[in-house]
Design a protein around this nucleic acid. Structure first.
Lengths: 221, 221
DNA sequence: TTATTATTCAATAGATTAATTGATTACTAG
DNA sequence: CTAGTAATCAATTAATCTATTGAATAATAA
C-alpha cells in the first residue's frame, strides 16, 4: 500500500500547484506563450520575488519549464496537457461552484444570446471569408502567437477601429480563455454599434492546443 | 480586475480540493460509485472523523454530493467532469513529475509489452466473443457497477479461477483506474500461467464516463 | 426511555503556505 | 573593474491546513 500512498502524494503535488489563485493566474498568462518573470509579475500584480517563488513551485510540480537568456529567465508551460488540465479545472469550477456561476453571470453575460461560436465552425467560415477574426489581447501577447489570420485590436483601440469598419462584416472576437473578459467586452461594444459580433469558444491556448492553425513568433526575443 | 482576482480565487478552491493525497484517494474510490463515510474511511485508512472532514471539503469545492439514508451518509462524485479532471491531473503528473514516472515504472510495469488495450477495441472484440473481460476489484465495488459482461474475480480468488479456465481464452483485466495495481497484478499472474492477458486502458470510471455499456446496481442498498 | 451506531462538530497542536523584506547571485554594458 | 538589471535566495510573520481527540447530534432498535 505504500505505493498507492506515494502515488497519491505525488498527484497531490500537481494539485497543490493549482491550489492558489495567483498561480492559476500565472498559468493563464503562460498558456498564451513564453514570458519573463518580470512580465508575469507586472501582469499578475505581484512582486517579482513572490512571482519567482510561485514559478518555482510550478516548476517543481512539472507544470512549467524555464530557460535563461541573458539577464532574463523565460518560463513556459511544459506541455499541452497542462492547458487541458486547466480547462478541466475551470469547467468543473464553473459547473459545480456556485460562486463561479454567480461571478460569470454577473460579469460575463451580455444580455443576448452569447453562445460562443465553436472552433470548427469559425475555421470554416473564416476560410470562406465570411467573418473577421479579432484578437483583443494586448499587442505583445498577439505578437507571441495568435490565431492564423486574426487581426489584433487591443480593447483600447477598439472604438477607433470600429469607425473604419464595414458594418456588414461579421466579427468573432477571442482573447485568453473561456473566462477572459476582453472578448466579452469587445463583443458587447461592437453590438452597441450595431455590428454583428460573437465570441469565439475558449481562447488562444485552447485553439492552439486543438492543433488549429496559428502564427507564432519564433524569433529569439 | 477584482473580477479576475475573484474568479481565480474560486478556481483555486477546486485546486485546493486536489491538493491533498488523501482527498485524491477518496475521490478515486468515489469515482467507482457511491460510498458511505465508513466505507471510505476503511479503504483509505483514515479515521472516520478525518474522512468526514475531507469529504466536507470536497463538498464545499463542489466535487461531491451527499445524501443521508437512515444512519448512513452516502457520498458520490458530482459529475463526470470530475473524472475527466482527475484523469487530466493524473496524466499531467505522469508526464511531468519524475517521481511519478519512477513509481509507475517501479511498481506497475510488467516486463513485456504492457500496452493497454483501448476501450474501443475491447468493446469490439468482446462483442465478437474473442475475449473475457475481467473485473479484479473487490466484490462490493463490482456490485455497485461494472463493465457490461465483465466477470468479477477479486485478486485473492484469481489462482482458484485460473484453474478452471480455458488456457486459450484471452483475458482483458481492469480495475479502478490507470494506476490501480490490481489489474497490473492480475495480468502478471495470468501471464505466468501462460495465459494471454492484457490490461484495459484506464479503469471503470473512465469506461463509464466514455458512455460505454455498464451494469449498475440501482437498488437502495 | 435507553443504548447503539454513523456521522459531524469543536478545540487543539504541529506542519505547511503565502507574502514581505532585504541580501545575494548572475549577467551585461560601459 | 564598476554600475545596473533580472532573478533568486533566506528569514520572517501571519494565515491556513491536517490529523487527533473527545463531545455532540441524529437516526434506529430494544
Amino acid at each position: 500500500m505504500a505505493f498507492k500512498h506515494d502515488l497519491f502524494a505525488q498527484f497531490a503535488r500537481v494539485g497543490k500547484a493549482l491550489s492558489n489563485g495567483n498561480r492559476l493566474e500565472l498559468l493563464e498568462y503562460l498558456a498564451q506563450g513564453e514570458r519573463s518573470v518580470e512580465q508575469l509579475s507586472t501582469v499578475a500584480g505581484l512582486t517579482v520575488a513572490n512571482t519567482s517563488q510561485h514559478l518555482q513551485q510550478l516548476r517543481h510540480a512539472g507544470m512549467v519549464t524555464s530557460r535563461k537568456e541573458g539577464l532574463k529567465v523565460y518560463y513556459r508551460i511544459s506541455g499541452d496537457d497542462i492547458i487541458i488540465l486547466l480547462d478541466a479545472l475551470r469547467s468543473v469550477a464553473e459547473r459545480h461552484v456556485t460562486d463561479v456561476q454567480y461571478l460569470v453571470n454577473t460579469y460575463l453575460t451580455v444580455k443576448d444570446n452569447l453562445e460562443p461560436i465553436p472552433r470548427a465552425e469559425l475555421l470554416e467560415r473564416a476560410r470562406d471569408g465570411l467573418i473577421t477574426v479579432l484578437d483583443v489581447r494586448p499587442a505583445e501577447e498577439y505578437a507571441s502567437g495568435h490565431v492564423s489570420g486574426a487581426v489584433n485590436v487591443p480593447l483600447k483601440d477598439l472604438e477607433k477601429w470600429i469607425k473604419k469598419l464595414d458594418k456588414n462584416q461579421e466579427i468573432v472576437a477571442y482573447c485568453r480563455g473561456p473566462h477572459c473578459v476582453l472578448a466579452f467586452d469587445a463583443v458587447a461594444r461592437l453590438r452597441e454599434k450595431g455590428i454583428k459580433a460573437r465570441r469565439m469558444e475558449d481562447g488562444y491556448p485552447e485553439w492552439k492546443t486543438a492543433g488549429l492553425p496559428v502564427e507564432e513568433s519564433h524569433s529569439g526575443t
